[in-house]
Simulated scan of single mutants.
Amino acid sequence: MGTATSSCRRTTRIARRWRTARTSAASSCGSGRAAAPTGLHAATADAADAIGLGAQVGTLAAGFGADFVVLRGHPATNLDDLHTDNIVAVLSRGRLVFGELPGTPAPR
């Protein structure tokens, strides 16, 4: 098994976690514009704090783990934009593993 297989497995795990976080955020905070910031915080920083990793992950900041999803739309104001059809790119451990970002090479 090569790097492509590992990357595919990692992307699948990230997508599964993404679906779980989206469902959790929507169900705990409702859907739509008013609940979006609360829902995103619950699915990221609050979730990381709950499992004891708040000092390492859950926030986009220098020195934190860099696993994140780039989306079309604006999920910070509308949770309906948290849909897998809107995924533009996935970064895992700071490396592009799916999709494309302007000015970066596609994943290998």
Results as ranks from 00 to 15, higher is better:
19 R>G: 05
61 A>V: 00
35 A>K: 01
82 L>Y: 02
97 V>F: 00
46 D>A: 14
39 G>L: 04
13 R>F: 13
15 A>Y: 02
1 M>R: 03
98 F>P: 00
31 S>W: 09
30 G>D: 08
74 H>W: 12
96 L>G: 04
47 A>P: 02
26 A>S: 11
71 L>C: 12
85 D>G: 14
85 D>I: 11
7 S>E: 05
44 T>W: 07
84 T>D: 14
85 D>M: 04
53 L>M: 12
73 G>L: 07
41 H>S: 10
56 Q>M: 08
24 S>G: 12
60 L>F: 09
80 D>E: 11
82 L>C: 12
55 A>E: 14
57 V>E: 10
6 S>K: 06
62 A>Q: 03
70 V>Y: 00
1 M>V: 12
48 A>L: 08
58 G>Y: 05
35 A>N: 01
7 S>D: 10
10 R>G: 08
1 M>Q: 06
71 L>H: 07
54 G>T: 01
5 T>R: 08
99 G>K: 03
53 L>R: 04
82 L>A: 10
40 L>Y: 02
19 R>Y: 04
53 L>P: 00
38 T>G: 08
43 A>T: 01
42 A>P: 00
64 F>E: 09
58 G>A: 11
36 A>E: 08
38 T>A: 13
48 A>P: 06
71 L>P: 05
65 G>Y: 05
32 G>N: 09
89 A>T: 04
94 G>I: 15
64 F>H: 14
